[in-house]
Design a binder for these strands. Structure first.
Lengths: 167, 167
DNA sequence: CATAAGATGCATTTACAATATATGTTATGG
DNA sequence: CCATAACATATATTGTAAATGCATCTTATG
């Protein structure tokens, strides 16, 4: 609510599907990463920028001014898939479980953005489009998605940290 | 509801943010185009495949088995931005307003997918991330998005039609 | 002029991202 | 050894907007 709420309260809101040519305002995208992925990347950035000590979830959430509950789940997930070492108990906290140079951004996005079916036809289980099989659009969208992920595959967390933190 | 509804009723549903490691099921993406864009592209495909006559909105909606209401708005919008010629009245219908080879897929997506802010920091008006300005992630995501759109920019509607329809 | 087509606005539903709450588990430091 | 501070986990609630439905208007033709 926080993030999009402000935007939506300020703006005249006419949904695209309920498009009103007298106002002609378009808003609200879908080609976006979830806030969950956003927070995952931000958490890694923060932790990567603080390599000398453990950081707590509260610290990260406070820094970004976001819900601690969200961050708890983000951190837990990143820990469970091997990006973070989490240490319970008093004086606990989290740190990177691998060198920043080995954390590939495309992999983080894939791990946090469960699937990236751009269109209905990407999921054969739910697809209903009768053109499937005789339609070249899907292939093109696949290529586009591959190009997108290809850029992210060329970057690691280390590449995204400030130069001063480079080894 | 139709499209995602089926998928969601069949599957065990545990939201990623409410991730449950005992089940461990991830679902529900966000890196996807809106159904609105989906329908826009499908409508263009159908109309492009029927170059010899006018087609009606009902015909398109029936073909794909989707809401006619949706399709009405999609067609109207595509008409208002110059992709379609719409003809009212009895014996009316729609046809392409330009040759299929001049309808660039990237432009259709941009016209129907209003903005594509992958992350909060893409919109300076609502951004709250304190790293902005000292964070290299945004630039990388920009590059990735550009790569995505670049692939779509290399394709026109004509490229997506069956070979038999090529001039 | 009845009818079949698109145009338009508004109301409703539903999904789910986001958030909140509650409680459990672990480990340390005094 | 236990109070406390940290992460772990499950469930419930909320808010937004995508998706859909419905009603009516406008246009043109056979």
């Amino acid at each position: 609510m926080e993030r999009r709420g402000r935007q939506q309260k300020d703006a005249l809101k006419i949904h695209l599907l309920n498009f009103d040519r007298t106002h002609g305002i378009h808003y609200d995208p879908r080609m976006q990463l979830t806030l969950y992925t956003d927070y995952s990347l931000r958490a890694l950035l923060y932790i990567g920028r603080t390599p000398d000590r453990l950081v707590t979830i509260s610290e990260i959430a406070d820094f970004y001014g976001v819900s601690r509950n969200h961050m708890v789940k983000v951190i837990h997930h990143l820990g469970s898939i091997g990006y973070l070492t989490t240490i319970r108990g008093k004086a606990g906290g989290v740190r990177l479980a691998r060198p920043a140079g080995e954390i590939r951004i495309s992999e983080v996005v894939q791990a946090t953005e469960p699937h990236m079916d751009l269109q209905e036809c990407f999921n054969p289980h739910t697809n209903t489009c009768p053109l499937t099989g005789d339609c070249r659009l899907k292939g093109v969208l696949y290529q586009a998605r591959a190009a997108f992920m290809g850029v992210l595959a060329g970057q690691t967390l280390a590449d995204l940290l400030p130069p001063s933190l480079e080894p």
